[in-house]
């Protein structure tokens, strides 16, 4: 008993241990899971795709760095916003627009709300909605897939506010082809991703695989993408049966930005419900809105607006789907 024990004591409140997952770990894992998708974007669309992604990420990061709360770059959430925005843009987008979109997404989609965790709407989609409103032509001009890797397609290095030169070889997306020209695209092309479209949205199968990885690591909640995809499949099957000219479920699932939206945008923890029941409601709502906009709306694609609209409903969904507290009866709680 002669040994004296005087360690420097740490005194914290209980619990004194915690699980290994931390918010930065989650965020950086999401970033890591995007790498294969970025590589695929480069493969299909050439270096232009990578430049667009880099420009939007740079916009997001610089904005977070300059007007954010400071020290928040390391948590990885701004990188995710920039990358996701870049992946949702066409590969011929002028880089200054992509940069501006990233800056707008972080500035108006996140920082003004109070930073990480406080925003109501998905920042990447806020950035994209801004670009859609400001530059409707540029954001719907999709250079053709394929060609040499280093070939610059589109109008990447246009100066701000100059009239865009539309001399690039472009092609419509499968959804656009169907909506405006009545042409369909082969399913295999859709699944693999060598079709027209935004840089990161075409490789449907790859996105699903990356999402499965995140779901297995519990970094995204599988209920949201599953409910979105099931809702889209069910509704479009019903519509296809009633009117065979409408696309069938497989085309709806694998075309456009649905996979990217369902797996990466809708599952953003900050802007999706906290309850599991709420997640089913949220995903179902997005799926229904996507089908409605695609079939009856003026636009060929509706994933962005569907998610943003359901983002707005999240607080109400949370409140309506509170679990029953232990030892209480339904209805007696409040």
């Amino acid at each position: 008993m002669s040994q004296s024990i005087t360690p420097k004591l740490v005194v914290t409140a209980s619990p004194h241990v915690r699980s290994q997952d931390s918010t930065p770990v989650i965020m950086w894992n999401v970033v890591g899971s995007l790498v294969p998708i970025i590589v695929a974007a480069g493969w299909f669309f050439g270096i232009g795709a990578l430049l667009v992604i880099a420009a939007s990420s740079l916009g997001a990061l610089l904005t977070e760095r300059t007007i954010g709360r400071g020290g928040t770059l390391a948590d990885g959430s701004a990188v995710i916003t920039g990358l996701l925005l870049g992946l949702s843009l066409p590969s011929g987008m002028p880089l200054w627009m992509a940069f501006l979109g990233g800056a707008f997404g972080i500035g108006f989609g996140k920082v003004v709300w109070g930073g990480l965790g406080q925003n109501v709407f998905n920042p990447a989609l806020i950035g994209r909605a801004f670009l859609q409103a400001a530059f409707p032509v540029a954001i719907t001009t999709w250079p053709t897939v394929g060609g040499p890797f280093l070939q610059l397609k589109g109008d990447l290095f246009a100066f701000p506010f100059t009239r865009p030169s539309l001399d690039a070889v472009t092609s419509a997306t499968p959804l656009g082809l169907l909506k405006f020209e009545g042409k369909t695209t082969g399913l295999m092309h859709l699944i693999i991703g060598n079709t027209g479209g935004s840089v990161g949205e075409t490789a449907a199968l790859l996105i699903l695989a990356c999402g499965a990885f995140l779901a297995w690591k519990r970094y995204l909640n599988w209920r949201i993408p599953v409910s979105i995809l099931v809702m889209v499949a069910v509704l479009s099957t019903v519509i296809h049966l009633v009117d065979p000219r409408r696309p069938d479920a497989l085309f709806m699932l694998f075309s456009g930005g649905l996979m990217l939206g369902a797996v990466y945008m809708a599952t953003d923890m900050v802007t999706s419900p906290v309850t599991n029941r709420g997640r089913w409601v949220f995903g179902g709502g997005i799926g229904a809105l996507v089908v409605v906009i695609r079939i009856w709306g003026g636009l060929p694609e509706g994933v962005m607006y569907a998610i943003l609209f359901m983002n707005a409903l999240v607080p109400f969904i949370n409140r309506a789907t509170q679990p029953r507290v232990f030892g209480t009866h339904p209805g007696s709680s409040r």
């Binding site: 740490v10 914290t12 241990v17 918010t23 419900p273 997640r279 232990f326 030892g327």
Partner: peptide
């Protein structure tokens, strides 16, 4: 030392894990 909770506190990202963990189903 490395087992203690001295790490930085981040903002709530509304991941909902606490709701799944709560044994009496609080929020």
């Amino acid at each position: 030392k490395h087992e203690t909770r001295l790490d930085k506190v981040y903002p709530c990202i509304h991941c909902g894990r606490c709701l799944e963990a709560c044994p009496v189903f609080l929020n």
